[in-house]
Nucleic acid binder design. Structure first.
Lengths: 270, 270
DNA sequence: TACCAAACTTGATAAATATCAATTTTATAC
DNA sequence: GTATAAAATTGATATTTATCAAGTTTGGTA
C-alpha cells in the first residue's frame, strides 16, 4: 500500500495537493484491500457509487499493525468500534471463573471482531494478535448512522451478524456432540475453507495459533489434540509439521467431522 | 386480551366503526403484550411516538397459536420473518449427518427466533412448539425498511443480534469446558433468569422440554441428565418432580455452574 | 553457538460420561 | 378405565478423554 507522508517542509498548497492525491490513492487502496474482505459487500455493494464509497472510506480508520501478543482490546473495555482483520490473525478469549481463559474464536484476514460487544456496550472478551496483524477500525456510531443512510449497508451488517450466530451454533454442535477427532477435523476444515474464501490455498497453510489455543477452543486437552494430529498424519489425512498443515484427504476428514452438507460447499465470500 | 369480532350482520358503517375501535384497542394491546417482550425496547423505544408505534404495529402479524409439536418453520425453509414468542415455548434444532438432531436452543416468551437465518436467507434449523404457543411474526423486509426510518429500531435490532452472539459464546464455553453437573446447573439457572426477566417466578417453574431435549442441548446422554437431577435433589439444591422445578440453593448452583460474574445479575430485560 | 524457556509429544493411569440393559413412571389413545 | 407407547430412572460396564509425568523439539536470545 503506497503512502505519501507530508513533511514540515511542504507549502500549504503542496500539502493540499498531496492530500487530494492521497484521497484518490486511498480510495483505490480500499477497493483493493477490501476485495477479499468479509466487508467487501458491505464496503462495495454492487450499486455503491463514488460518493457513498467515499462516505464509508471516511469512517474507516487504519490502525498501526499489532505485534504478536499485543491486544486489540481487553475484556470489559468499552465498545467503540467493529474491527476487520486486514492481515495476520487474532484470537478472542474470555476469562473463566477459575482464572483460566476460554478461547472463543480465531480471526483470519477479512473477518470481523467486536460484534458480540454491541449488546452490552463493552467487550465480553479480549482480542490478542497471534502474529503481526493489521486491522481496520470502523467506529460503530458512524457505521450505525451510515447504515441509516445506506440500506445495503444496513442489510450487509445484519447479514454478517446473522452469519456469526449461525457459525456459533455450528461450533456449539461440535462442542456438544462430537468426539475429539471430529472436533479437530472440523476445525482444520473450517480454517481451510476460510483461507480458500480469502483466496489463499485451502490444502496447505500455516496455523498461527498454538496447540494449546486449539485445544482450549475445541474444549480438549492439549495432549489429546497432539495425539489427534499424530493420528491424522499416520492415517494419511494430513501432513503436519509443527504449524504447517497439508490436507491430504479432505473427503475422509469431512466424514470424520460429520459435517452437514450445508457447510461443505460454502462458496459465499461471507 | 380483548377482541372484537366482526359478524356478518353488521352494516358497513358499523364495521368501519368497529375497525377503528379495534385499531385503538390493538395499539393498547400491543403495549401490554410487548411489555415483557424482548422486543420491548424495539417496539416501544423511550422516544417512540404514536405514529411510529402505529407503523410498527402495522407490520407485526399475530399468527394462530401453534399446538404442541407443530412446527413454526422447517429446516431449509426460506427466511421471511423474525418471530417473537408471546406465550408458550419452542425448541430449535438442526439435523446432523447421522440422522440425529441437535437442539440448538429453547425459546421462552419474549424471545426471538430466526436471527440465524438472515445470512443465508433460509432457516438453518427447525422450530417446534413444546406446548401450545402463540407467536408474533415480524416480516423481515418490513422490519428492515422500518429500521431505516427509525434509528432506535435499527439500534435495538443490532443489540438483540449481538446479545444472541454473546449468549451463544457463553453456551460454547459451557459445552467445551464444563462437567455434566456444571452444564445442568447453568442450564437451570439460565431458565430461571429468563423467567425472572419476563416477570415470572425464578425459583419455581415448569420445564416444557423433555429430559431428552435437555440432554441433547447440553451435549450429554439422557441418563446423565437424569442422574444429575437426582443428585441435585439429594444435595438439596433443587426440588424436582418431573417437569416441576424449585430452586432451593441458587448460590451453590452458581458455584457449581462456575458462572461468570457478568451473568449473575443480568437485570437487563434483553 | 549454546542455553533456556516454552511448546509440543508420548506413555501410563484415572476420572468422567456414554452405552447397554432393565425397570418404573407417566402420558396418550381407544 | 385400561392398554400401550413414550419418557424417565437406575444400575453395571465400556469407552473416551483428562490428568499426571517424563521427555523432546523449537525458537529466542545472550
Amino acid at each position: 500500500m503506497q503512502q505519501i507522508t507530508a513533511t514540515e517542509l511542504q507549502t500549504k498548497a503542496q500539502r493540499t495537493k498531496i492530500r487530494q492525491n492521497k484521497k484518490v490513492l486511498d480510495l483505490h487502496a480500499v477497493k483493493v484491500a477490501c476485495k477479499e474482505c468479509s466487508l467487501h459487500q458491505l464496503c462495495l455493494p454492487r450499486s455503491i457509487n463514488g460518493a457513498d464509497l467515499e462516505k464509508l472510506d471516511n469512517i474507516i480508520e487504519r490502525k498501526r499493525p499489532l505485534k504478536r501478543n499485543e491486544h486489540l482490546f481487553q475484556v470489559g473495555e468499552s465498545f467503540q468500534s467493529i474491527y476487520v482483520v486486514r492481515s495476520g490473525s487474532l484470537k478472542t478469549y474470555s476469562p473463566t471463573v477459575d482464572g483460566q481463559e476460554q478461547v472463543t474464536g480465531f480471526h483470519l484476514p477479512g473477518e470481523l471482531l467486536g460484534l458480540d460487544a454491541i449488546g452490552k456496550g463493552k467487550h465480553p472478551c479480549a482480542a490478542k494478535a497471534l502474529e503481526t496483524t493489521s486491522i481496520c477500525e470502523v467506529p460503530f456510531e458512524n457505521l450505525e448512522s451510515l447504515s441509516q443512510e445506506l440500506p445495503t449497508l444496513q442489510h450487509q451488517l445484519l447479514r454478517l451478524m446473522s452469519k456469526e450466530i449461525f457459525d456459533d451454533q455450528e461450533l456449539m454442535l461440535l462442542l456438544g456432540k462430537k468426539t475429539a477427532e471430529a472436533r479437530l477435523s472440523a476445525f482444520l476444515l473450517s480454517i481451510s475453507l476460510r483461507f480458500k474464501q480469502r483466496g489463499f490455498s485451502s490444502i496447505e497453510f500455516y496455523l498461527s495459533m498454538s496447540r494449546n489455543d486449539i485445544a482450549n477452543y475445541l474444549g480438549l486437552a492439549v495432549e489429546t489434540v497432539s495425539r489427534m494430529f499424530t493420528r491424522f498424519q499416520e492415517d494419511g489425512l494430513i501432513e503436519v509439521e509443527r504449524k504447517h498443515i497439508v490436507i491430504k484427504n479432505r473427503e475422509v476428514m469431512r466424514q470424520i467431522a460429520g459435517m452437514n452438507e450445508c457447510c461443505e460447499d460454502d462458496t459465499q465470500v461471507n
